[in-house]
């Protein structure tokens, strides 16, 4: 049952977003006014096509998933991707408030832990500091970017 929801939910979300897009496009205004095309014209076409394609996909997935519901999931770490998304989100918030260095070291360190076994913490911490220092050099010197600091 869980597999069923997992497979169908993305198609369902796409369908909902497509319908939402189409409704918003309709609310922009009339597609044609005084013989001229208006800003809603193109979104209305795209929205209609999106609703049609996402509807077909939702129906096809519904039929397919019911048939192969016995198949197991294909991931060895099902929660790894959501954890990474949370890490990146927290990093972006910290990056803009605390600055580049400390959040970046913690971010790279936690990313390294996600891609390896939970051991050799000191070695990983040192590597993280080196990566962040190199990153600073690349961005500040090579890319010419002023990275945020604690003082703004």
């Amino acid at each position: 049952m869980l597999y069923f929801y997992k497979k169908i939910i993305f198609q369902f979300l796409i369908f909902i977003v497509s319908v939402g897009y189409l409704v918003t496009a309709i609310n922009i205004g009339s597609p044609v006014l005084n013989g001229g095309l208006q800003p809603s014209f193109f979104p209305l076409i795209i929205g209609s096509l999106a609703v049609m394609f996402s509807g077909i996909l939702l129906f096809k997935e519904w039929v397919l998933v019911k048939r192969r519901a016995a198949d197991a999931g294909d991931e060895s770490k099902p929660y790894a991707a959501p954890i990474i998304v949370c890490l990146i989100f927290i990093y972006i918030i910290a990056f803009s408030t605390i600055g580049y260095f400390i959040p970046s070291v913690l971010f790279v360190f936690s990313m390294m832990l996600m891609f390896s076994s939970k051991e050799k913490f000191v070695q990983k911490a040192i590597i993280s500091i080196v990566i962040v220092a190199l990153g600073h050099l690349i961005f500040e010197l090579l890319f010419g970017v002023r990275l945020p600091t604690l003082r703004g």
Binding site: I84, I88, Y91, I92, I93, F95, S96, Y100, S104, F107, V108, F109, M111, M112, L113, M114, F115, S116, K124, I127, S128, I131, V132, L134, G135, I138, F139, F143, V145, R146, L147
Partner: peptide
């Protein structure tokens, strides 16, 4: 090359790289 080092570096370059365009979070 070690995958943890590789993806740690890629993640940093990717996230900070997206800041470069407009300097906005």
């Amino acid at each position: 090359i070690r995958k943890d080092v590789l993806y740690g570096s890629i993640a940093l370059l990717a996230v900070v790289g997206s800041y470069v365009a407009t300097y906005s979070t």
